[in-house]
């Protein structure tokens, strides 16, 4: 009986070796998600990708017009889908965006404040005011655009990409040293967290069955073991760094610079130069126009002007 089973399994195995050449898509784990290894995104230099963080994450701060911020948001999604990031993975941020919306609009409707030029209108039995409402709308989209400008970076890049970006800028070694050490510490912290959670799940912890309060308590409880682990990790990493000759100065004993193989693996192309230059120029231009000349401020928003006119026209 047993022998027959072995024979059968072996037979199946031979058969399967021929048919199991199914190639599955290789993915690369990033800080917040996964991206196909062959994403066109990775043709761009890490520094270029890093600049998109500044560009997309900060630019909306200087723009009040919601229609432009929505366009930036659309651009972010196009960029992500061109990078072949699975957009459905972004679903997890939906609750956050909805919560923020409810919170902001509830405050603005409940506590609109009052100024003489406020234009009121009734809506489903409520007395609403246009100006504070539109202000909230604009702030909301600005915030969401900034949020996704940041999320896009962290869901397409790893610690390594950020390190390469920083080192490309030739900041002093001590700075990049501490930066990389803290990135590693963050990475290990997350790793330890994952380990502890898995250990707890192996002993019956069911996070999906917890209430929000319980979950908060749980996370607070992680701090103790994480702290102990961190102490041990510090010892370990000191040993590990020393054992392979890492020094704070970044200099060799003969005075030369430590070599940087990983960095030189990333080609810095003309396209990267052009993109970075383009993004920086646009950024500077927007800041100058906004701060110096009041472009894209709330009062000048065509959408706002149009709606206000409608409201005033319709009201009279």
């Amino acid at each position: 009986m047993m022998a027959a089973q072995i024979a059968e399994n072996t037979h199946q195995w031979r058969y399967r070796l021929d048919t199991s050449l199914r190639v599955s898509q290789r993915m690369r784990r990033t800080l917040l998600g996964t991206v196909p290894v062959h994403s066109p995104l990775y043709k761009l230099h890490p520094l270029t990708r890093f600049v998109t963080l500044l560009f997309l994450g900060v630019l909306p701060m200087f723009i009040d017009w919601p229609e432009i911020n929505i366009m930036i948001l659309v651009a972010i999604f196009i960029y992500l889908s061109w990078s072949r990031v699975d957009l459905s993975g972004l679903k997890i941020y939906l609750p956050l965006t909805i919560t923020v919306a409810i919170f902001m609009f509830a405050i603005s409707i409940g506590f609109p404040g009052y100024k003489p030029d406020y234009v009121g209108f009734p809506f489903m039995g409520l007395q609403l005011f246009f100006q504070p409402l539109f202000f909230t709308l604009a702030s909301y989209w600005r915030l969401i655009a900034m949020l996704f400008g940041t999320i896009q970076y962290f869901s397409t890049n790893r610690e390594r990409d950020t390190l390469v970006a920083i080192r490309t800028l030739h900041v002093p070694f001590v700075i990049s040293y501490f930066f990389s050490l803290s990135l590693r510490a963050a990475g290990m912290f997350m790793e330890d967290m994952r380990i502890i959670r898995e250990a707890e799940r192996a002993r019956g912890l069911d996070e999906t069955a917890l209430t929000l309060a319980d979950r908060a308590k749980l996370y607070a409880m992680y701090l103790i073991p994480l702290f102990t682990l961190a102490i041990r990790r510090t010892d370990e990493i000191t040993n590990a760094l020393v054992a392979r000759g890492y020094t704070l100065s970044g200099k060799l004993e003969n005075g030369n610079q430590r070599s940087d193989y990983i960095l030189s693996k990333y080609p810095f192309r003309l396209l990267d130069r052009a993109l970075i230059l383009g993004m920086l120029c646009t950024f500077v231009l927007v800041v100058i126009l906004r701060v110096g000349f009041g472009y894209w401020s709330m009062d000048t928003d065509p959408l706002r002007i149009y709606l206000l006119a409608m409201l005033l026209g319709g009201g009279q």
Binding site: M2, A3, Q5, I6, N9, T10, W13, R16, S20
Partner: peptide, 20 residues
């Protein structure tokens, strides 16, 4: 082997098949 179950049986029988 490589994610596939290739043998399953009594230890003695398994070890008496060095080729597989």
């Amino acid at each position: 082997t490589k994610g596939e179950l290739v043998m399953d049986g009594a230890t003695r029988e398994i070890f008496s098949q060095p080729d597989i």
